[in-house]
Amino acid sequence: MKRTLPIALASMGAALGMIAAEPPPAPDRPLPDAAREARAQALFDGIRCVVCQHEAIADSPAVIAADMRGLVREQIAAGRSDAEIKRDLVRRYGDFVLFRPPVRAGTWLLWFGPFALMAAVAAAPLLLARRRRVEPMALSPEEEAQLADIVAQANLRRDPDAKPSDH
């Protein structure tokens, strides 16, 4: 009884994992016109997979990437321009879907965020070093007199390598 419960739970987990697994995408159907298919392939390289996020839809094995490739091919077959296709994808998924989003107020963080972060990282040590610099306080006349007495009373050994200007 003690062994059957873990085995039953493991087999149920495996069965649920197979049920929940995403089915493989349908194979791509290239456009019959080679020029249009080449145009589609060029567009695929500039469109980000919304699941993988670091891959273009041309390279992504995700089902949604296959759907996006099919959508792009449909729009090319319908006679839409590249700009219209990109606008439609941005409308559906946002500016992040393009590897080169347009420069505008909403995408400044995407374009200039890495540079601002690098500048902040470079400036932080400089600001911290500047802030830590503490000027020594001047000695009071009493402290100077005490220091002079200590130096005069001390049996100081002269540096044999010292020049006359160091004495």
Rank of each mutant, 00 (worst) to 15 (best):
A83I: 07
Q153C: 00
I19M: 10
A58S: 15
P114L: 04
D67Y: 03
V134K: 14
A154Y: 00
L71Q: 14
I64F: 09
E37L: 02
R131M: 06
V151K: 05
A162I: 04
G106W: 01
K163M: 12
P136Q: 05
R3W: 11
L126V: 13
Q53F: 13
E37S: 04
A122C: 12
P160W: 00
P141T: 03
L110A: 08
H54S: 08
D59C: 04
W111F: 09
P23M: 09
G70F: 01
Q53N: 15
M118S: 15
R158M: 10
E144S: 13
A34P: 06
E144C: 12
T107F: 00
Q146T: 00
V97P: 06
R132G: 08
A162V: 05
G94F: 09
R39Y: 02
L109I: 14
Q41D: 01
W111L: 08
P101W: 01
D59A: 12
T107H: 05
V90I: 13
D149G: 02
A83F: 02
R69C: 06
P101D: 03
A62F: 01
S140M: 07
A35M: 11
P61G: 09
D28H: 09
G113D: 02
Y93R: 01
E84I: 08
A116M: 11
V97I: 14
A20M: 05
P6M: 03
M12G: 08
Q53I: 15
D88G: 10
I7Y: 11
I150A: 04
L156D: 00
P160L: 01
A154C: 04
D166I: 09
P102V: 02
C49Y: 03
N155P: 03
A58R: 14
D159M: 13
I7E: 13
R69I: 06
P32C: 06
A56I: 08
A62P: 01
A124K: 07
R91Q: 09
F96Y: 10
R133Q: 12
H167W: 11
A78Q: 13
M1R: 13
A26L: 14
A77F: 13
L9E: 12
W111E: 07
E142L: 11
V103R: 14
E142K: 10
P30T: 03
E84K: 10
K86P: 04
P32A: 10
A42E: 11
Q146W: 03
V121Q: 13
L147V: 04
